[in-house]
Design a protein around this nucleic acid. Structure first.
Length: 826
RNA sequence: GCGAGAGUGGCGGAACUGGCAGACGCGUCGGACUUAGAAUCCGAUGGGCGAGUAGCCCGUGUGGGUUCGAGUCCCACCUCUCGCACCA
């Protein structure tokens, strides 16, 4: 018998697949399309088994769908612009391009050894001119439609990476990448107006049935929609009106002060001369507060009275105006009406500064609130009191009526606010796509015309961590002429956030080599949306939101037919080692290369899928992969035993079966075809699919070992072996091909059809049912499956053991569930 | 605090629309083969009482409920994970 030698058969089949173009996707086909996409990696160094999980899952789907008759698009590429390449350049004096391309080559080799069925002709890398040319095109389209703009803004600045960060890249006040606390800088920056799409991005989520709920929830939270009203409060003795936003117009009658964000221009307009000195002191103190601390719930609320009063337009009451550190300029209107009785923050502030607390909402249970005894604000909805004509109504009733009333009287209006901010895309960095605009003394900001793209990233630059893009010091790049007037102009030296690169890459795979356009509109219509997207949950708000935004934009301007790019999303769990994420610095990285060398790619693929349900995090176990390897070897040797005997057996139609054993074995085969099909189709249950393969192999072995060799049913074994190869092939494609060849097939497994299970094989003649007395199992009995209920009841009550348990008591009734249990109730 | 999800053997995890809890694998124990080990193969393995392959009792986070029957459904609670969080 041949030994199992993955190191020989795996390269053999990888070569075969490549030479025969079996991974390549025809652009047009009679078959229905299926687009399966895995999140492309950032090429820093090599990949570890955590990445492999992502790619293996995609490969199972791709190989399965091909066998189901789909024209499958399964591409791969690299998100190859970004900071680590540049840091490597500064640290090790190696050019980012060289560093990146070396890494890409390593990763490509690693992946090829795994037998992942990517169409390598469609491979892309975002740092190449052919790609970033179209990233720049995308920028121009956004600019053209007023969705790319430049403004001076308070931005998140990472002092370590020396670049600005998008809001989405700030985690707990720290740089998502390096963990350094983020500071605030005021800089001229480019933004994409994602806020214009807030509502569409939110509504679109409801249509995404194939997305995990928690990802949608995270996006909803991030968009942060609040409905309420805007109301103008005139400031006494000035022309100034303070516009506020509130989600609780039902508390308008309880306003006892106003508060304005320290950064608000209103502060200057409102403050009285005699309060100016103190204000200066207050503002300088507040501006020193760390932004993250200032915006945390536990922060001490501080404020400063501006010396003036506002008039509450609903009841004419005069209330003092403060500036306070807990008011954020970025949210709402940068000013609030404060209702201490019904807002916890206002309550704390009022307590500190001795401001009145006025109750206008009472609990629905009718209990009373007293301003002096309250220990915290009553923030629930309730019944309005002291609120003019609205007193006595519930909050729910009153809110729409009050909004209408405000609108009629011209005091306020219905309003919707979002937490989502515009997407800051400028990076003061070299290794990214240059922003294609120039600054002309005469014409101002001028976009680079489309036919002059790409704005090439120069190769020879000096890397200095100055906080300025290295392009700033590259005279040749910097100085140019204005495309409009031909006069001297300077280029934009900032590059784009790498999330811009990855926001549209799924479209480029469709026409990766087109140098006339980013993608072909008709082909995109054909191929989009991505049917199945697979990746890590860490991209729940960043990449997945940006991609949806860009896709919706391209949809709106007529380039993409669908308005959501990813029909189904699967977020896979991470692989941990020693309780921690794998990372080079921790030294707990498991390399796929080592595992392939030791066990082969097929074992590695199967183990990664078997270790846990794919959406869950899992701990790498060396013993675990050993166990799967044992199974793989058993699968091999069992197949070899069978193949030796059935190589020349011809089978047309069903094998004839001679006894119960053979019937049971054939049933097992078809049960497992059914199970594995349903496990793949019904939600990525790869772990149980593999346990199904194990069960099948166990049953085959029991049959082989329990039957004299000359009595083996060779027709049945032929059927089993053929089908075993097919259902194995997405998981362990190399072994499947080798066994398929051994069995005499001239055609690759990849070109065969996925098997159908034979319903008739699943039928049983006899079943073992459990006999329960009062819900407890007391006995078991084998009966013909069609035994009528009355008959079963009789049989069950006649059982010696049951008689003993009943000890003469009369059964009240017997519940029989066909083929499963009979429950005797006494 | 709000939102989402999850609690099952020593471990990873199975369990269809409520129907024999613990599939499959790891680990452990015992055995075969071997000079020995590795590999391989066979058997046992939720806990307890029991000489036992007889039999009985307990058992899916906790406490109730519905039901002939609950890991699964309902109510209350506890714990954990993730996300959001001074968002007006």
């Amino acid at each position: 018998m041949r030994d199992y030698k993955p190191s020989e058969i795996e390269p053999k089949w990888q070569k075969y697949w490549e030479e025969n173009g079996l991974f390549n996707t025809p652009q047009k086909s009679d078959k229905p399309k299926y687009y399966v996409l895995v999140m492309f990696p950032y090429p820093s160094g090599t990949i570890h088994v955590g990445h492999v999980k992502n790619y293996v899952m995609g490969d199972i789907v791709a190989r399965y769908k091909r066998m189901r008759g789909f024209n499958v698009l399964h591409p791969f590429g690299y998100d190859s612009f970004g900071l680590p390449a540049e840091n490597a350049a500064i640290k090790h004096n190696i050019h980012p391009k060289i560093w990146t391309e070396k890494n890409i080559e390593n990763i490509r080799n690693q992946i090829k050894k795994l037998g992942i069925s990517y169409d390598w002709d469609r491979e892309i890398a975002t740092h190449t001119e052919e790609y970033y040319k179209w990233t720049q095109w995308l920028f121009l389209k956004l600019y053209e439609h007023g969705l790319a703009y430049k403004k001076k803004a308070a931005v998140n600045w990472c002092p370590n990476c020396k670049t600005v960060l998008a809001n989405e890249q700030v985690k707990d006040g720290k740089c998502e990448r390096c963990g350094t606390p983020v500071t605030i800088k005021y800089l001229d920056q480019w933004f994409f107006k994602i806020t214009d799409y807030a509502e569409k991005l939110l509504e679109g989520l409801d249509k995404l049935r194939g997305w995990p709920e928690h990802v949608k929830t995270m996006q909803r939270n991030w968009i942060g929609k609040s409905e309420g009203a805007e109301v103008d409060f005139p400031v006494e003795g000035t022309d100034v009106k303070i516009r506020i936003f509130t989600t609780r117009p039902d508390t308008l009658w309880g306003v006892t002060f106003m508060a304005v964000a320290p950064e608000s221009p209103l502060v200057e307009q409102i403050v009285t001369d005699d309060r100016r000195e103190g204000l200066k002191e207050f503002l300088s103190r507040v501006s020193q507060q760390d932004r993250f601390i200032r915006t945390s719930e536990s922060a001490e609320k501080e404020g400063y009275f501006l010396g003036r009063y506002a008039i509450n337009p609903v009841n004419g009451e005069k209330v003092p105006i403060y500036t306070a550190n807990y008011i954020l300029m970025e949210y709402g209107t940068g000013a609030i009406m404060a209702v201490p009785a019904h807002d916890q923050r206002d309550f704390e502030f009022a307590k500190k500064y001795g401001l009145p607390i006025k109750i206008v909402i009472k609990p629905k249970d009718g209990s009373d609130l007293s301003p002096d005894e309250m220990e915290k604000a009553f923030t629930e909805k309730g019944i309005l009191v002291d609120s003019g004509n609205f007193s006595g109504m519930t909050s729910e009733e009153a809110i729409p009526k009050i909004v209408k009333w405000l609108e009629e009287r011209g005091i306020g209006k219905r309003s919707v606010q979002y937490k989502l901010r515009d997407w800051l895309i400028s990076r003061q960095r070299y290794w990214g796509a240059p922003i294609p605009v120039v600054y002309c003394e005469k014409c101002g900001i001028v976009p680079v015309p489309e036919d002059q793209l790409p704005v090439k990233l120069p190769f020879n630059v000096e890397f200095k961590p100055t906080g300025q893009s290295p392009l700033t010091y590259h005279e040749e790049f910097l100085n140019t002429t204005c495309p409009k007037c031909g006069g001297p102009a300077k280029r934009e030296v900032d590059t784009m956030d790498t999330f811009v690169d990855s926001s549209w890459y799924y479209l480029r795979y469709i026409n990766p080599k087109d140098d006339e356009k980013p993608f072909d509109v008709d082909d995109v219509k054909e191929w989009m949306p991505v049917d199945q997207y697979i990746g890590g949950v860490e991209h729940a708000v960043l990449h997945l939101m940006y991609s949806r935004f860009i896709n919706k934009f391209l949809h709106d301007i007529g380039y993409v037919a669908v308005d959501e790019p990813f029909e189904n999303l699967f977020t896979q769990g991470m692989i941990y080692k020693d309780g921690a994420k794998m990372s080079k610095s921790k030294g707990n990285v498991v390399s796929p290369d080592d595992m392939i060398e030791k066990y082969g790619a097929d074992t590695l693929r199967m183990y990664i899928l078997f270790m846990a349900p794919p959406e869950k995090d899992a701990e790498w176990s060396d013993a675990g992969i050993e166990g799967v390897h044992r199974f793989v070897k058993r699968l091999w040797s069992t197949s070899q035993r069978i193949i030796e005997k059935v190589k020349d057996v011809k089978l047309s139609g069903k094998p004839s079966l001679r006894n119960k054993k053979e019937k049971a074995l054939r049933r097992k085969l078809h049960q497992m075809i059914k199970k594995i099909t349903e496990d793949i189709e019904g939600g990525f249950k790869f772990n149980t699919a593999i346990s199904g393969l194990m069960e099948l192999v166990n049953s085959i072995r029991e049959y082989l070992d329990g039957t004299l060799e000359n009595e083996w049913n060779l027709e049945l074994l032929r059927e089993i072996q053929e089908n075993l190869i097919l259902i194995l092939s997405p998981f362990a494609p190399h072994m499947a091909e080798e066994l398929n060849e051994d069995l005499g097939s001239k055609e690759s497994v990849m070109l065969k059809n996925w098997p159908h299970w034979d319903e008739s094989a699943l039928e049983v003649e006899e079943v073992e049912i459990a006999i329960l007395v009062n819900g407890k199992v007391r006995d078991k009995v084998v009966i013909p499956v069609d035994t009528p209920e009355e008959e079963v009841k009789k049989i069950v009550l006649e059982r010696e053991k049951i008689k003993r348990v009943l000890s003469g008591k009369n059964p009240k009734k017997v519940v029989y569930i066909k083929g499963r249990i009979a429950n005797i109730v006494v």
